[in-house]
Nucleic acid binder design. Structure first.
Lengths: 208, 208
DNA sequence: AGTTGTGAACTTATTCACAGCC
DNA sequence: GGCTGTGAATAAGTTCACAACT
């Protein structure tokens, strides 16, 4: 299967597999079958095997997957085997929460630059990172930072995205409820939290 | 098309259409074609028409869709035409940001109950909502709150989910990196922020 | 016996293309 | 002329089922 195009959905699931494997490791489990992983993540065993097969043959028939080895492989595929630095733009409520969020470390991600346009925030040091003026975004070029996180209001999101692209950013995680127009070479993933929550009432039973 | 099963992907896009329509309304646009909406949201015109057709015929050939009328229809479909109250569990960094997040209003969503297990937070009033002890989750039953937001560490997420379900919650937005085991009647949507960010390096060009 | 890896079958989702309408 | 609504065609994604391996 190694020469096929990789489905987007497969890439979306890879971090989940990694999460499951880390959970196994914590519990001292050395080998895990696609069925056991399936119980943990609620993704079908066939799906797991198929997804992994796009990248190679990592398992042992009759045994399963070596948790440490497979985790390493997946990190390599996702390119998170070496640390990735990210720049955060917008130190409002959400931005501050992201800066303090402890979950990024498990995936080798680190927010190592922060920008805001509020003079009251610029210059402050939060989580060992100095808050800089958004006009200084271009300085990212010299810092080997390829990932950006946008946590500003929708009205400012596009101009921030433009500045990030100009500064050499190649991947953007966008929390603003707005479609960002960027060059094809830049990958954008948008999380619109309100929009996700807005989907839930649809599934509520009719009788309130 | 009215009698088909609705694809999940269609439901996922409905809030986007609503966002596009609100944007049009702000600009004073009365009617919008699927093509104009497409340019705004980057969803194909055919996709937009097909999605809407599952629920009825809302447009006028030669003209497009009346923005106000269609917005109202979509709100009805999503059941957000009347306000929906949500309970937030976990007032850490992320929980606090969510409580202050201004974006929910546009979708008729309101966080009207907050729970935490930190004695230092219980009793405080944030954004006009009094923080209660998580052990009081069962009181939700009397408050007609059907939506829950979980913003607690992964280790506590399942027990919080159990309590929410017991308290009559039927829809959960989960930010903990953990698969939640709940009865089929309860809809869970999980956002694992770190996992989403972890996908970006994959798309970076090989040469750093 | 137990599990992987994978082509084939199936299911789901998207796009095409055009009749019908304004 | 321009647009919607939709069946038909296409593409994408998932599951089946089993040969091959430990």
């Amino acid at each position: 299967m190694r020469y096929h195009k990789i489905p987007d959905e497969t890439v979306r699931r890879l971090p989940m597999y990694l999460r499951g494997l880390l959970l196994c490791r914590e519990q001292g489990v050395r080998d895990v079958s696609s069925r056991k992983l399936s119980e943990l993540l609620h993704i079908s065993p066939a799906q797991i095997r198929k997804d992994l097969s796009y990248f190679g043959a990592f398992g042992t028939p009759g045994v399963g997957y070596d948790t440490a080895k497979l985790a390493k492989q997946i990190r390599g595929i996702l390119k998170i085997d070496t640390p990735n630095k990210a720049a955060l733009v917008g130190l409002g409520n959400l931005g501050s929460a992201l800066l303090k969020y402890p979950g990024f470390g498990a995936y080798g991600l680190q927010i190592s630059a922060v920008f805001d346009n509020d003079p009251g925030k610029i210059g402050k040091i939060v989580k060992k990172v100095k808050v800089e003026d958004v006009s200084k975004l271009s300085t990212l070029k010299n810092k080997n930072i390829k990932l950006g996180i946008i946590a500003v209001p929708a009205s400012a999101a596009q101009s921030v995205a433009d500045a990030l692209v100009k500064a050499g950013i190649r991947g953007i995680l966008n929390f603003a409820p707005f479609y960002l127009d960027v060059p094809k070479k830049v990958k954008v993933i948008t999380i619109d939290i309100a929009m996700v929550l807005a989907r839930l009432p649809y599934y509520l039973p009719a009788s309130a």
